[in-house]
């Protein structure tokens, strides 16, 4: 559109040759850059934007996935918020997951990174070794830990054999422990990645600050609290944001390890979407849950933006 307009405006004033040249320049400056971006844009529209918009429509319908969708207004949302107990349970489980992931991996990775930061020799060995679980596929991590947590042939059974009881329980098969166990396994895979991020942040802190703290007689804890933590605050805040969003989207480990069981004890929003769409053929209802998940993620981002606008240094 803008190309045509620029071309027309030039018509009166420019001669034939200049006009061609000018049009050529406009093509080169405006059209060619968009030609380069076109494949990305086209694929993105078909895969992400189009289906995202139609999800908004389907969430207002009763639709099995085949045939016509029947418009039912806000009925899916009414059912979701007032009738569906499993939705409440799933939401609560996502919150529990969030709380676990805002504490356990954060503490582990901050401790490990601050212990690793002053080390020169062999630091690569630690860094690579602790990072390796992060590159494994979730099905493998899940298999390794279901074996290790097996009450009869796992770690717990060996501990029991040498007189340490309690660990030989079916942690994944029991309602009270299923969700924390999944979080523990997910964290085994995740925390090393967080550690490497924090380590990179810590290595960017100027050495003078530590020198100054030592001259002032700061203890190791004071050094950590007053130099290290403020130094990597941008990374910490960003990872809190990412963790908060991620905890509401978790799917892989839950699906692989328990499929939401036993009896809904580890059900989360993402497994509900999957079951509604592909097991119960309620695609409209699944779209409604998916939309609620997106709004949750959007709300978390908005809180961060709001706090930043209010002058919080995050």
């Amino acid at each position: 559109m803008s190309i045509a307009r620029t071309g027309d405006a030039g018509l009166g004033r420019l001669g034939q040759g200049q006009r061609v040249q000018r049009r050529h320049r406009v093509v080169r400056k405006k059209v060619v850059p968009w030609l380069f971006a076109l494949p990305t844009l086209a694929i993105n529209l078909v895969v992400i934007l189009g289906p995202s918009i139609s999800a908004g429509y389907y969430s207002l319908t009763e639709w099995s996935g085949v045939g016509a969708a029947e418009f039912v207004g806000l009925d899916n949302y009414r059912r979701l918020f007032t009738e569906d107990r499993s939705f409440h349970r799933a939401f609560l489980n996502n919150v529990i997951y969030l709380i676990i992931f805002l504490t356990l991996p954060m503490v582990m990775s901050l401790v490990a990174a601050s212990l690793l930061a002053p080390i020169r020799r062999a630091s690569m060995v630690y860094r690579i070794g602790l990072f390796i679980p992060y590159v494994l596929p979730s099905v493998i991590t899940a298999f390794i830990w279901t074996s290790l947590m097996d009450p009869g042939r796992g770690l717990g059974s060996q501990l029991a054999r040498i007189g340490i009881p309690w660990f030989d329980q079916p942690f994944l098969g029991r309602s009270s422990t299923a969700l924390p166990s999944i979080a523990f396994i997910d964290n085994w895979h995740w925390w090393g990645f967080l550690m490497v991020l924090f380590l990179a942040g810590m290595q960017g802190i100027p050495a003078d600050l530590y020198e100054a703290a030592r001259i002032d007689g700061a203890s190791r804890w004071q050094e950590f609290r007053d130099v290290t933590l403020p130094g990597i605050r941008p990374t910490i805040v960003f990872m809190i944001l990412m963790t908060s969003i991620g905890a509401f989207l978790v799917f892989d480990y839950i699906w692989i390890l328990t499929q939401g069981g036993p009896a809904g004890a580890s059900e989360v929003l993402a497994t509900l979407v999957f079951k509604a769409a592909f097991n119960n053929f309620e695609a409209g209802y699944a779209a409604a849950i998916g939309l609620v998940m997106s709004l949750l993620a959007g709300a978390i981002i908005s809180v961060f933006v709001f706090l930043r606008r209010r002058g919080w240094e995050i």
């Binding site: 895969v47 189009g50 998916g290 993620a297």
Partner: peptide, 19 residues
């Protein structure tokens, strides 16, 4: 692109599958 990449897969998964 930034907004698109932070949308959860669950949002567009169902319509995308049937498409």
């Amino acid at each position: 692109l930034l907004v698109g990449s932070s949308l959860p897969i669950q949002l567009f998964l169902v319509p995308l599958f049937f498409l």
